[in-house]
């Protein structure tokens, strides 16, 4: 599928080491901003019991789920350490202070 970049908002709208969500037809996507001002987009649903990952503590390029402390890599979406599981990731980047999210898979009528 071709890419479809959408301007989601300003980098400043997300606190450093924090996250905001974007609502989509397939559920919420969490957009994280790291201490180094990188932006990552992953599904906002923990594969364990559905915890909202956007509310987790961000450390390095990882987030800890607020419900039971599973840790996920923001780049790969893979659970770290002893836990196994994965969340979907989406291409996202920052250009001139704006956040661009590849919405190709997100605005399609059905899950792609």
């Amino acid at each position: 599928m071709t890419q479809s970049w959408l301007d989601i908002g300003a980098l400043e709208d997300i606190p450093r080491r924090g996250a905001r969500v974007v609502k989509t037809r397939h559920g919420c996507v969490a957009l994280f901003r790291t201490a180094a001002d990188q932006v990552f987009a992953i599904d906002d649903r923990c594969p364990h019991k559905g915890g909202p990952l956007s509310e987790g503590i961000v450390h390095g390029n990882a987030v800890t789920c607020p419900l039971h402390n599973w840790v996920f890599s923001l780049e790969t979406g893979l659970a770290q350490g002893a836990d196994s599981g994965a969340v979907a990731t989406y291409p996202a980047e920052v250009r001139q202070g704006r956040i661009l999210l590849d919405c190709a898979r997100l605005i399609a009528g059905r899950a792609a």
Partner: peptide, 8 residues
């Protein structure tokens, strides 16, 4: 939410 794409 930062954005709502459900109607996009």
């Amino acid at each position: 939410p930062l954005a709502d794409l459900t109607r996009e």
